[in-house]
Design a protein around this nucleic acid. Structure first.
Length: 584
RNA sequence: GCCAACGUAGCUCAGUGGUAGAGCAGCGGUUUCGUAAACCGCAGGUCGUGAGUUCGAAUCUCACCGUUGGCUCCA
């Protein structure tokens, strides 16, 4: 195809993509040399390098990687050309007769001819493009082996995927490897332990979070902020039970379509009760508790609702994927003429929160109806809701991707995913229409004409869950929370034991100004106390010795390492109060 | 759930068939110090759990539990 275009006309990105793709082919060749019976899956470029999927007679281990790497380097060294060709599908089937996965791919190609690329003795089914010669492939590193289902479907056989990292230059590759190490340092699981924020106790239940005093303090600050802003935004804050009788979950449909995520029932007086995986059915009962007039809408019921969901053991991941979590949930019931404005308010509210926590990197997805599956509600409703969602994110200028057919069966939705240190995306915000539950629970309001109407119901979580949000936030700040969120805002450090009395006086002053303070009265040297406070990422270190006690002052050292020298206590308190009142 | 690796003291890790180790943290003592680790000592582990092989298992085998990285799924 376009593989013969002049080198100069290729952008840097295209060139890098070709190198990555070519490296995948070279890896396939190397693996085939070690395992002549290897069956090949696919081997595309990805944004940090490349991978290739294989079916092999034995499992690869990390010890195999250097051997494969060595063979790849030999091939790069030999600098043979990548030669494209086109052959008919029948001929291709003949050539790949012992490669079932390639045959499957050939069957799906609509053209009469299929593309091949050959380097040395190795031929792969491929559209290209590639670099011209193997020698053009820059330095790389094989990273890991992992299982991956053929075509991403768990009903298919699992292949072995080898991941490689590849960048333009050796320097960029090294930078990437350093970034990985940095990511490891700011991994929320590590920070959670080092900063004593939370823990897990696997022997007593995996995926269940224990929030320690300091983590609890930060969470409380986030929740207080959340409540205050929700009240201000016209939400009502509610609390619902943690369990409900099976009849509730039968009516809601959860026992039919969500049971694999629900825990086994408990027997109470001979009745089955389930721990809630969602808050919606409860909020609906609150709505339905009295007849609603069109004048009362919109009704916005918000709850920091703790839910429990069964997650398969292999997917648990620190705070980012747990089995018990607290959603910052809300259900909005509104009239048709209010839908647009309510969605606008949700999206604006979401942006307000993400802004307050200084998030700039997030990805917005609009999920539309799966045209092949079943769906609740009418096509008109789906069309209207999808348009509203699309219009709002367009009007607000939010870059987004469309996830065609990605919606759940009960309604279209907007999802916002945050990125962790390793670049993995985690869904936090979700704003979704629900055409199912209002129907099932027969949710209504009385319209102007005195007749019963069905309200629109929007389910939304802005932070997502406290656990996941906290995990992402922790990595985002690398543990160094801004002053308003810091669990300990200042540590007072007496230089010698004779300064402890004054240090406590300083502590009292700061506490009565509403600041969160600790006094480090251990029998350690000042240097050691500074180091420990620094490692705990405490924003303010207040060193007090003879001079400070004399002057009602403290020597201020900031987390940045900046030394502000001795300052009067009044000035320090004013400064900290001012800084703490600002978010971001 | 699936594939692979891993599981030794609170943490980070050494120990690959023959008497369980180090650093940090903890505790006790000495030191009272001016901006990122004072010094000395003590204590701490049925080596994830359970079977098996062996004269003998942290070490080899199997099963289970859990963690990590992926796959799939989701806040």
């Amino acid at each position: 195809m376009g593989n013969r275009m002049h080198l100069e006309s290729i952008t840097k990105e295209e060139r890098l993509e070709r190198m990555r793709h070519s490296a995948a082919h070279i890896m396939a060749e190397a693996v085939c040399e070690i395992f002549p019976d290897a069956r090949l899956g696919i081997g595309p470029p990805i944004d940090t390098g490349f991978y290739y999927d294989f079916e092999l007679p034995r499992a690869l281990t990390t010890e195999d990687l250097p051997i494969i790497e060595e063979k790849m380097r030999e091939r790069i060294e030999s600098n043979v050309p990548f030669e494209p060709s086109q052959i008919g599908k029948d001929e291709a089937r003949e050539r790949f007769h012992d490669q079932p996965y390639k045959l499957e791919l050939i069957d799906e190609i609509s053209d009469e001819k299929v593309g091949l690329y050959q380097q040395g003795e190795f031929v792969d089914l491929c559209q290209g493009p590639h670099v011209q010669r193997t020698g053009e492939v820059s330095d790389f590193k094989l990273m890991s082996v992992a299982g991956a289902y053929w075509r991403g479907d768990e009903h298919n056989p699992m292949l072995q995927r080898v991941y490689g990292a590849l960048f333009d230059t050796k320097e960029e590759l090294e930078q990437y490897l350093e970034r990985l190490e940095e990511a490891h340092r700011r991994d929320h699981r590590r920070l959670g332990r080092e900063l004593d924020l939370f823990s897990f106790h696997e022997e007593f239940g995996p995926g269940l979070v224990y929030w320690h005093p300091k983590g609890g303090r930060v969470r409380t600050l986030i929740e207080d902020f959340w409540r205050q802003e929700h009240l201000r935004a016209g939400y009502d804050i509610v609390y619902s039970p943690h369990i409900g009788k099976s009849t509730l979950w039968e009516t809601s449909g959860h026992l039919d379509f969500y049971s694999e995520n629900m825990y086994s029932p408990m027997d109470i007086d001979g009745q089955d009760y389930y721990v809630k995986p969602m808050n919606c059915p409860f909020h609906i009962q609150m709505y339905k508790n009295s007849l609603k007039s069109y004048r009362e809408l919109p009704i916005r019921l918000a709850e920091l609702g703790t839910v429990y969901r069964y997650e398969r053991s292999g997917v648990l991941h620190g705070l980012l994927r747990v089995r018990g979590f607290t959603q910052d949930d809300a259900h909005i019931f509104c009239r048709p003429d209010q839908v647009k404005q309510e969605i606008e308010r949700c999206v604006e509210f979401m942006r307000f929160f993400l802004g307050a926590f200084d998030f700039e990197q997030f990805h917005v997805y609009l999920s539309t109806r799966d045209t092949s599956g079943k769906y609740a509600g009418s096509l008109e409703d789906w069309g209207m809701a999808t348009n509203v969602l699309r219009d709002v994110i367009n009007e607000q200028g939010l870059p987004h991707e469309i996830d065609e057919g990605g919606a759940v069966f009960y309604g279209p939705k907007i999802d916002v995913k945050m990125v962790d240190t390793l670049g993995r995306e985690w869904q936090c915000t979700t704003i979704q229409f629900d055409f199912n539950l209002p129907e099932r629970f027969d949710v209504t309001y009385i319209g102007e004409d005195g007749r019963e109407r069905r309200p629109y119901m929007v389910h939304r979580a802005l932070l997502g869950s406290m656990e996941r949000f906290f995990g992402v936030l922790l990595e985002h700040y690398a543990g160094a929370f801004p002053l308003w969120l810091a669990p300990v805002q200042a540590v007072v450090i007496p230089i010698a034991d004779r300064h402890i009395d004054y240090a406590e006086k300083v502590g009292v002053e700061l506490r009565s100004a509403g600041l969160r303070v600790e006094i480090d009265a251990r029998g350690e040297r000042m240097q050691a106390k500074i180091r420990d406070a620094q490692l705990q990422k405490v924003p303010y270190m207040l060193v007090v010795g003879d001079r400070e006690a004399e002057a009602s002052a403290a020597a201020v050292r900031l987390r940045s390492g900046e030394d502000l020298k001795a300052r009067p206590m009044t000035e320090i308190i004013a400064r900290m109060k001012e800084e703490g009142s600002q978010r971001v």
